[in-house]
């Protein structure tokens, strides 16, 4: 197999290391669509990057971290700091408390003034959100009346449906939890044993509804698995978080 040119390898290496700017990430997604043979090189480079942490020096965690981590994980406690750091925090609180009392009085006055302004701003934001939600709903209804269901995606965090629209476009409509501004949902297509390939990224509105059009040349083949993960904007080279919803395209 001929090695990809250096400029392409520059992009792929930086891609798996998470060192690309958003526009460059999109460039890599396009390259992978146009030249599927690059997937092999990408898979090798990704496997290499994923081994880097094994070279790190071992640092023994505090003895009580296991108990704290597990109790926090199963919901029996809030995140607990180690005994030493808790003591330090208490001292900091004592030092800050006295200075804080004076500051609080000033803040209360300021907050009252700011709240009046905030209320107006909030009302306009809500109106904008409602208008956006209505526009999305109207588009969804228009599409759903004529579209054909190609796959249903489900999971503990939400659900989605992939539709084949009359104009030939493929649409994903999803209902997922709203995200922070620096996060996006990423749709992955998985064919057989191949590594997941990004098919699209999208966001949801304040009500959790979002949709994305999958371009014709990125349309997943019949039988492909589709999955959605929550990723840092503008998307990731490979999935970095658990699958939220997953489903399989109809085989026809």
């Amino acid at each position: 197999m001929t090695a990809p040119p250096d400029d392409v390898l520059d992009l792929l290496t930086a891609y798996v290391l998470g060192a690309l700017e958003p526009a460059e990430v999109s460039q890599v997604h396009q390259l992978l669509e146009q030249q599927p043979e690059l997937q092999r090189t990408l898979t090798e480079l990704r496997a290499t990057a994923q081994r880097l942490p094994y070279a790190l020096a071992d640092h023994e965690p505090p003895a009580d971290l296991r108990r704290r981590a597990l109790e926090h994980a199963v919901g029996r406690s809030q995140p607990i700091r180690s005994v030493a750091s808790s003591a330090m925090v208490r001292w900091r609180w004592l030092a800050l408390t006295f200075g804080g009392i004076a500051a609080v009085a000033v803040v209360v006055v300021l907050v009252t003034l700011v709240q009046l302004v905030d209320t107006r701003v909030e009302l306009s934001r809500t109106a904008a959100d409602l208008a956006a939600a209505r526009a999305v709903q109207q588009q969804v209804v228009a599409i759903a009346t004529e579209a054909q269901v190609m796959a249903r995606l489900s999971g503990g965090s939400g659900r989605g449906v992939v539709l084949s629209a009359p104009a030939g476009a493929t649409l994903l409509i999803a209902n997922l939890p709203p995200q922070q501004p620096d996060r996006v949902y990423q749709l992955w297509r998985i064919v057989g044993d191949e590594a997941p390939i990004s098919a699209a990224t999208f966001t949801v509105d304040a009500h959790g509804y979002g949709f994305v059009t999958i371009a014709g040349d990125q349309r997943p083949p019949p039988g492909a698995t589709l999955a959605v993960t929550d990723e840092p904007a503008p998307g990731s080279p490979g999935p970095t978080t658990p699958i939220l919803i997953v489903g399989q395209l109809n085989s026809t």
Partner: peptide, 26 residues
């Protein structure tokens, strides 16, 4: 201290989302 908080955060995430782990993804 931040590292300890990250560890707790990671295990909470594992507990909450292990059901959506998919072996096909790696």
């Amino acid at each position: 201290q931040t590292a300890e908080e990250v560890v707790q955060d990671v295990f909470q995430s594992v507990w909450q989302t292990a059901g959506s782990y998919h072996p096909e993804l790696g």
